[in-house]
Amino acid sequence: MSKTVKDLTAGTAGGIAQVLVGQPFDIVKVRMQTAPKGTYSGMVQCATGIFRNEGPLAFYKGTLSPLLGVGVCVSIQFGAFEAAKRYFAAQNVARGVGGPEGKLLSPPQLIVAGSLAGLANSVVSGPVEHIRIRLQTQSATAPLYSGPWSAVRNIYGAYGIQGIYKGQVATFYREAVAYGIYFCCYDMLVQWEMKKKNIRREEINPGHSLLFGAAAGYALWGFIYPIDVIKSRMQTDGFSLTDGQKYRSTWDCVRKVWRTEGASAFTRGLGPTLIRSPFANGATFVAFELAIRALN
């Protein structure tokens, strides 16, 4: 099995773990991000309202789309990131840096590799998250879509491919910044552990991989949460002015949210995100590392 196939397979395992662990927190985040100001006093009220009005299964509303889509997304992330790392490692060997195999990459190299992984991933993550958010925020009593395929068919039939890729500009910004930070943080911690204990990557304790993944997740959200809010706003906005569209572009969305709701709107829903992050991201990296070990 080639290295790329192994990376993609292990990335899929990481993506599935991420969705199963993080989905209940994610729906609370999205509801808080996209609701009018004052709808919820906090994440507890939001979560309680979802449970009381829609039942416990509502926390996994729209899960099929991310379970399939995020598996593909994370597979692409890790596949692209590991391919970029191999490219930079070969450059390091030619320059005589980065250790015997050139695998000790510098922070700028890791940031570029992570950003490339995020951009590659965004082609899939944009529509996957758009469909998921549409399902998560639709009315429980009068839903527009019966499921992810219904949403895809209806949106594509009415608005074409542009409708499916609604909010894609914000997605590009988010993924490039987010995954540059995310993968750099994780791999720097891995390199630190390897050098400190003089061990190989596959010898790192899975518990440490869990902690490193949690730290990477916090680093990611600490930098890009406001961009994520804008992405969610764009993806739940109406498709045309006659459908109640509020925002003409990504920057128009930024200006209007700032003007009408203030700076606090850009951190709304951050609580459930920070609670979710260590579990979901820790699970992602542990699943990836264990899958890679099993495949080698």
Rank of each mutant, 00 (worst) to 15 (best):
V254H: 11
D7E: 06
G49T: 10
L220H: 08
G62A: 12
A17T: 12
L210Q: 11
N154L: 03
S75D: 04
A151V: 00
M1V: 13
R259P: 07
A84T: 10
P272I: 11
V72G: 01
K197C: 08
A214S: 11
F223V: 15
Y60P: 08
R200D: 00
D237K: 00
V74W: 06
I133P: 04
G71N: 08
F88T: 09
I224L: 03
L8F: 13
T63L: 10
I161T: 09
S139W: 06
P108M: 09
Q77G: 05
A280G: 02
D187R: 13
P206I: 08
V93K: 12
V286D: 06
F239I: 08
F172D: 00
L144Q: 14
V124W: 04
V97C: 00
G15T: 04
G79K: 09
G213D: 04
L211F: 12
G207M: 07
V254N: 08
C73Q: 01
S277K: 04
L290I: 00
G167A: 02
Y218V: 15
L135S: 00
L274N: 10
Q18C: 03
V190K: 09
Q191Y: 13
E203D: 10
I227V: 12
I155R: 14
A10M: 02
G147V: 09
A47R: 13
Q245R: 15
K6V: 02
S65Y: 00
F78V: 12
R259E: 15
R134Y: 03
T284S: 04
T9A: 15
A219N: 02
K197S: 12
W149R: 07
V128H: 07
G42S: 09
P108I: 05
G163W: 08
V30L: 06
D26W: 15
K29G: 05
C185F: 04
T12W: 07
Y218S: 07
W258S: 10
L241A: 09
H130Y: 10
A140T: 06
F266L: 15
Q33K: 04
V257L: 14
R233E: 06
V74E: 00
F239A: 10
P143H: 05
I227E: 01
T267W: 14
Y87F: 14
L104Q: 12
T4A: 14
A17C: 05
L144G: 13
L210R: 03
